[in-house]
Amino acid sequence: MLDSGSLPGKLADCQAKDPAKAELFLVEGDSAGGSAKQGRDKAFQAILPLRGKILNVEKARLAKMMQNNEIATIITALGAGIHDDFNAAKLRYHKVIIMCDADTDGNHITTLILTFFFRYMRELIDRGHLYLAQPPLYLVHKGKVKKYAFSEAEKEAHLKELPDGGVQRYKGLGEMNPDQLWDTTMAPATRVLKQVTIEDAIEAEQVFSVLMGEQVEPRREFIQDNAHLALNLDV
């Protein structure tokens, strides 16, 4: 096992000793976290379930942030410190994968996590260690044939291939059994990962600075200017 010290109790660690071969999944919710723990390859994949929305670091002072259980758990699991004390050489995993539901709440949680990393572990992003998992939105099935769809267009294409096929809409990661989660979102051979760039993080941080910061007027102007984009915004 990796040198653990006092690792968080809910972290299901991997067996890999080389950080370059180790992955950490930050998973939204205990239900999906349980499925991920069952479906993973424990040789190189570690799972850390996160409960609910993590602290909004845009509004919190450092001392308060360090008292937040979910934030503290992430920092401890990664093992590299934060901010000026961040040391990439101590990083326990070279792939950190945010795995949240493909819905408004999931997007909100992803943005909170991105903002935290941008503010306090920016080097993690600069070095290309941060990724977003891309879970499917639909399962199209007919008989024994199953096809996963990651967009509306892909769903329609599968329905043309499988006329009269059934469609299952995944409302959350917790609705997938461990095998489905592995096949669609975790298996290196079949999954889709988006590497987070510093531009992605800056955009997330800027949006959150406006939407979650202390200044009311910029927030009102942003929502008015982007009302067409914010119909499903849940902040």
Rank of each mutant, 00 (worst) to 15 (best):
W182N: 00
W182F: 00
D183R: 12
D183H: 15
D183Q: 15
D183F: 07
D183E: 14
T184G: 03
T184C: 04
T184Q: 01
T185Q: 11
M186C: 00
M186H: 00
A187M: 12
A187N: 15
P188S: 03
P188E: 04
A189G: 02
A189H: 01
A189P: 00
A189K: 01
A189C: 01
T190V: 08
T190N: 10
R191M: 08
R191C: 07
R191Y: 08
V192C: 06
V192T: 14
V192E: 09
V192L: 07
L193S: 06
L193P: 05
K194M: 05
K194F: 07
K194Y: 13
Q195R: 13
Q195T: 14
Q195L: 02
Q195F: 04
V196P: 05
T197F: 04
T197L: 04
I198Q: 07
I198T: 15
E199R: 12
D200K: 08
D200E: 12
D200F: 10
D200H: 12
D200N: 15
D200R: 11
D200G: 13
A201D: 01
A201P: 08
A201C: 01
I202R: 13
I202P: 00
I202A: 02
I202H: 02
I202N: 04
E203S: 11
E203R: 13
A204N: 04
E205M: 06
E205A: 12
Q206P: 03
V207I: 11
V207H: 10
V207E: 11
F208W: 12
F208I: 08
S209F: 05
S209D: 09
V210W: 00
V210Y: 04
V210L: 09
L211A: 07
L211Q: 07
L211V: 12
L211D: 04
M212G: 03
M212T: 12
M212V: 11
M212K: 12
M212N: 09
G213N: 04
G213K: 07
E214G: 09
E214W: 08
E214A: 12
Q215C: 05
Q215H: 10
V216T: 11
V216E: 10
V216Q: 05
E217R: 10
E217N: 10
E217K: 13
E217D: 13
P218L: 01
P218Y: 00
P218H: 00
P218K: 00
R219G: 02
R219P: 03
R220Y: 09
R220I: 15
E221L: 11
E221T: 13
E221N: 06
F222L: 10
I223P: 02
I223A: 08
I223E: 07
Q224A: 15
Q224W: 14
Q224I: 14
D225K: 15
D225W: 10
D225L: 10
D225Q: 14
D225G: 06
